[in-house]
């Protein structure tokens, strides 16, 4: 899939409590969750973010809780792709399972500036900073995970699998 949007840059260890604070976990409605995405980190984020925008962060993005509300909130807030130097393990699984595109690419994270227009191709792993003209390649997904993404998430993969039996 291909996406293009403006980059919103944040630091390392962005945890799931700041992505979506627990005080909003009494619901799992994506639209409700989206209203509070990242608010404890950046009160302006929800106002600034435009549909199709891209989150860029340093190491260990999504550390902490297993709440799937985190990738759901990010996606519902309008973000299509998160590019980070590394992802916390549970967040990595949750993003793949729920269909939030993620890319691991330290070089791109170092180069992309706040507000740069970035285009990505998740299939080839290509990341282009359109503002500066630089191109990067993210680490490819192992085939097993690529298969889940292609199926449209883990649930669809199982539906296909059980349907075939």
């Amino acid at each position: 899939m291909q996406f293009k949007g403006s980059a919103h840059r944040y630091g390392r260890d962005i945890d799931t409590d700041v992505i979506i604070p627990a005080r909003y976990l009494t619901t799992s409605d994506p639209a409700e969750l989206a209203k509070h995405c990242l608010e404890d980190l950046d009160t302006q984020f929800v106002e600034k973010v435009q549909p199709g925008d891209i989150l860029v962060a340093e190491e260990n993005f999504g550390c902490g809780s297993s709440r799937e509300h985190a990738p759901i909130a990010i996606k519902a807030a309008g973000v299509d792709v998160v590019i980070a130097k590394s992802f916390a393990r549970i967040f990595y699984r949750n993003a793949i399972n729920t269909g939030l595109a993620i890319m691991e690419c330290p070089a791109a994270v170092d180069a992309i500036g706040q507000g740069d227009v970035v285009s990505v191709d998740t299939e080839t792993g290509t990341i282009v900073d359109e503002t500066t003209g630089q191109t990067f390649t993210a680490q490819p997904f192992p085939p097993f995970i690529a298969e889940i993404i292609e199926a449209g998430g883990l649930v669809n993969r199982w539906k296909n699998k059980l349907g075939q039996q």
Partner: peptide, 18 residues
């Protein structure tokens, strides 16, 4: 190990996880 709700839901439905 901790997982998200989708992994857990698939686990509850199938008894399996990757």
């Amino acid at each position: 190990t901790g997982v998200g709700s989708t992994d857990a839901g698939v686990g509850m439905a199938t008894g399996k996880a990757w």
